[in-house]
Design a protein around this nucleic acid. Structure first.
Lengths: 235, 235
DNA sequence: AAGAGCACCCGACATAAGTCGTGTCGTGGC
DNA sequence: GCCACGACACGACTTATGTCGGGTGCTCTT
């Protein structure tokens, strides 16, 4: 983790990053300037923990580069993924607005650049600028939507169904094929965490889908051969 | 469902109800007056549906009296409880701040009185009054905390563990005993919905706990004989 | 008093999910 | 080339969870 005051080039990067954050791009200059001068740059290596569940929530973060996950763990070591974040997502704000501790742990999945904004700065802006608050409200609401879906899936759907749904949700078109790209960190273990299960079970599920000709698991991608058939199994 | 303009006595009831809503009591008079004049009273019978998941989110509701549940269902009829609300909780706001449709269905568990506030009123207040927005932000954040816990429980904990946790969480002291009160609508089916399982499984879990001397299931309450032993099973 | 409906019980069962031990394979360091 | 390691495969197994069909007792109605 490195620390640096936002010197001109850094400030530019931050400005560009913030500009891509939904609802924050159209904030008045006063808000933007406060954010620009208060944010500090941090860097994390793959696997490094940014904060743990229960840590005091001193900062709200903006993810400039790299993927990050937020999760909760049991003593036994099982892990439930809560969010997988990519640029330019905001994280850490929930803790700031509730009891002052982060609700989940956050880990860098790959080399990541983030901007840390002090909690008081955010709270101050929210109190003074309605348009900033409304942006936060929208951000928080859409996150609730995400967690409602997560709870529904975990409570009502089988691992197979969740897998199919996740594949379809993360699919992109790549030279004519429908694929879910796999990064270096997209191991079976990580995918299992995302689905709320363990590697073995996920592996079996994938095999089953592959045997049924619905998908093709390659080193750097999962090819969706039959999106329609996959959709059928989401029930 | 009945409709009535807030005549003086009604307005008083509404005022009292709003006064008990966290973060809303200390709103400036302008905010309070807007809410008081725009809210309409509705009544629902036990089992009646207030809105379904996907309905256009025209109102934000304040629950004045009675219990309400919010849930999602599969085609097959299985149901996952998302929230169990009691006076004076707010509901329906998520849909207003996202895509304009309610994310879950809401059902009255018993005879219920609610106040419906038009979505535009809420949006307008949020844009104009920072202190109102901050109240909403806190409300939304604490709801996120709830859903994170729900997701964690569903993903990482067994039905037994969830049951123990829920019993402890809902326990109250009643003439010296630690009990979870049962209302008329607290059937095994409803409890199962809350835990994200089915009646039969819940029934077995309860039997097991009873056989082990940890609890006592009575008609109108579940007595926690050994809270410490229950806590051990929450792992 | 009979009948209907509901809440719940119970045993048998099928399937889903998680665990464990071992083995393979490719990669990267030395 | 050798070795260590991490990612993944596979089969055997246990346990958890959900489903089904039938049965009991209670309450409310008529």
């Amino acid at each position: 983790m490195t620390d640096a005051a936002p010197t001109p080039p850094a400030r530019e990067r931050l400005e560009r990053a913030l500009g891509r954050v939904p609802y924050f791009a159209q904030q008045p200059d006063a808000v933007k300037n406060t954010l620009l001068t208060s944010a500090r740059h941090h860097e994390y290596e793959a696997g490094q923990i940014i904060y743990l569940a229960g840590d005091p929530a001193k900062y709200v973060y903006v993810l400039e580069q790299g993927w990050i996950k937020s999760s909760r763990m049991t003593r036994a070591g099982r892990e439930q993924g809560l969010l997988f974040l990519r640029p330019v997502d905001v994280f850490g704000h929930i803790g700031v607005f509730t009891d002052g501790t982060y609700p989940g742990s956050t880990t860098a999945l790959e080399h990541a650049h983030v901007w840390a904004i002090p909690a008081e700065t955010i709270l101050g802006l929210a109190r003074q600028h309605p348009e900033f608050s409304v942006g936060l409200i929208r951000e928080l609401s859409s996150r609730i939507l995400h967690f409602i879906s997560l709870a529904e899936e975990l409570g009502l759907r089988s691992v197979d169904a969740r897998l199919c749904q996740n594949l379809l949700r993360n699919a992109v078109i790549q030279d004519g094929r429908m694929v879910v790209p796999r990064r270096e960190w997209t191991t079976f273990d990580e995918m299992a965490v995302r689905l709320g299960t363990v590697r073995d079970v996920l592996s079996r599920s994938l095999k089953k889908l592959e045997a049924d000709g619905l998908i093709l698991v390659e080193r750097d991608a999962i090819v969706l051969l039959d999106p329609h058939g996959l959709a059928d199994r989401c029930n």
